[in-house]
Every structure is written in structure tokens, then in C-alpha cells.
Design a protein around this nucleic acid. Structure first.
Length: 266
DNA sequence: AATGGGACCTGCGCGC
DNA sequence: TGCGCGCAGGTCCCAT
């Protein structure tokens, strides 16, 4: 968390609210989250710039600014953007034209803010695989056929496909009825087709509902996203499967929790 | 190429 | 009650 649907939701919220606004002041309360340039230069350079465009690539938010620079924001696990803000716990406060504040909160300080000349050149962006919604079925099928990796960690691999994290990987595989431990290349053509379809459906439905408010994720307004009620397996270990009434199981894969129904997912 | 582990962090829930 | 421990996961990095 947050993954593609949450970041996309925040992107759309930001487009409604802060597009065209000017950054009048930046207050840095914890410099650890500013990865480049130095916090001092970051703060001074942003002052007076207007937000011209707001994009998302994978789980990265990109704010294109009036002088050609871009502010990139990675929320990692506990990052939040809240408007109107002004919380005492914020790490960075962006004062905007109109007098209100956009807060960047981040309890665990994993989040990353960067001010860069060209966001396309940053290492993280260069390493990203295709966006799920830009990927054709033919390409997806071919990509899977080349991989021996287990399917669940593969879906979370940002160089393979961008934007899917631990929560949605589990949810997508449940709906596709595929065991998360299966080697990717062992999937049948039919399974690949279902996986492709469910990847798009789960992600787009999650976006429609404003993302999943698990842990710290909130929308720009501070309100929760509404997709949690559609979760079928994530965080449900030991509970009954909604489809077969069997028990949902939790296993570790690559140091991360994987949730699945051993009966429904083969 | 694939896989596993640790590092970065901090609040929370658990067991004792 | 209070304490210490492990866990949560996005990404990078190193080792095998």
C-alpha cells in the first residue's frame, strides 16, 4: 500500500483541487523525505512555481511545474497527501495560492520527494515495466511465457508490470482462480486470459471506489477509499472463503504475506 | 535468471 | 501494567 489504484485516486483528486495553483511556500519539517536536491534547494526552487500537470507512472506521482521541473512523490507505505492540511505531524507542508496547505505526511519516513529536471530520466522510472492498462493481451501472454518465477511475486515486480503491490496481487489471483505459487510459464492460455482480464478489472474497480484504505492510505480529502469491502482474501487468513466456504490461507512469498484460497485457486 | 535476505522506519498487537 | 519482540510492505542492494 498504496498501489496503483490508490496513487491514481490521489492523482485524480489532485487534478481537481491543486492543478493551476502556485506553491507559495514550502516548510520542511523532516528533511529525510527529500531525496534530491538538498532540502534547502528543494524548498527554495519550488517557491513560486505553478502546478501545470499531474501524472502517475506505476506508484509514482509526478507534478509537472511551470518552469519545466517536476516534483515526484513516492508514498511508499505510509505516505499521505492531504488537502487542506496544516497538521502538526506533517513532514513537508506545501503552501498553495488561495492560502491552504497541502500536507505530505509519512509516519515511517520511507516516502521520497524529488525535484528533478526530467522525471523520465530518474532511475526508478527507467526500471518500470509497462502500465497494466497500456499492456496488450498478446504482450502480457508472451511476457508470462518467458518467466519461471512464481506468479504472485512476478505481478509485484515493478520491472515486469508497474503499479501492482502486495494487496492487489493477492486479490487479482483470487479472482483469476490461480494459485500464487504457480510458475508464470505454467499458466495455460485460458488462465493467462483470465489473469489479464482480472488484472484490469480489479485495478479499475479499485480506482472507481477510490482505493483501499488499509493502514494509512487516505484520499486527498482525508477520507478513506471504499474498495476494502470488495476484498476477498487480503488480510482474511483463517476466515471463510466467500466462494467455497473453505479457509483462506496466508503464506510467505519473498518475505511478503500472500493470501489465497487453496481450494478455489489452482 | 531466480531467489533470499537485509536495510530503511515506526506504530501496533501480541505474549509473557 | 509494562515491556520487548515481531510484523507490516515498496524499493534498493547484496549474496548465492
Amino acid at each position: 500500500m498504496p498501489e496503483l489504484p490508490e496513487v491514481e485516486t490521489i492523482k485524480r483528486d489532485l487534478q481537481e483541487i491543486i492543478l493551476g495553483k502556485k506553491i507559495t511556500e514550502v516548510c520542511v519539517y523532516n528533511p529525510a523525505v527529500i531525496r534530491e536536491p538538498s532540502p534547502d534547494v528543494f524548498k527554495k526552487s519550488l517557491k513560486g512555481l505553478v502546478v501545470k500537470n499531474i501524472l502517475r507512472r506505476g506508484k509514482l506521482l509526478i507534478l509537472e511545474l511551470s518552469n519545466g521541473l517536476s516534483l515526484t512523490i513516492h508514498l511508499k507505505m505510509t505516505g499521505q497527501l492531504v488537502y487542506p492540511g496544516g497538521s502538526k505531524n506533517s513532514r513537508v507542508a506545501f503552501h498553495l495560492s488561495g492560502g491552504k496547505i497541502l500536507d505530505f505526511n509519512d509516519q515511517r519516513l520511507f516516502g521520497e520527494l524529488r525535484l528533478v529536471d526530467d522525471w523520465r530520466k530518474i532511475k526508478f522510472i527507467r526500471g518500470l515495466g509497462p502500465e497494466p492498462f497500456d499492456l496488450t493481451y498478446a504482450d502480457f501472454r508472451d511476457m508470462l511465457s518467458k518467466k519461471k518465477t512464481k506468479i504472485k511475486p512476478l505481478l509485484m515486480d515493478q520491472s515486469f508490470i508497474s503499479g501492482i503491490g502486495n494487496l492487489y496481487a493477492s486479490e487479482i489471483l483470487f479472482r483469476a482462480k490461480i494459485d500464487p505459487r504457480r510458475p508464470a510459464q505454467s499458466l495455460t492460455k485460458a488462465e493467462k486470459g483470465v489473469l489479464y482480464k482480472e488484472t484490469r478489472e480489479v485495478l479499475s474497480s479499485a480506482i472507481v471506489h477510490g482505493g483501499s484504505s488499509i493502514d494509512d492510505y487516505v484520499r486527498l480529502s482525508g477520507e478513506p477509499g471504499g474498495y476494502v469491502k470488495f476484498h476477498r482474501v487480503y488480510g482474511r487468513q483463517g476466515k471463510l472463503c466467500f466462494v467455497c466456504k473453505g479457509l483462506i490461507k496466508k503464506i510467505a512469498q519473498g518475505g511478503r504475506g500472500t493470501y489465497f484460497c487453496p481450494k478455489c485457486q489452482r
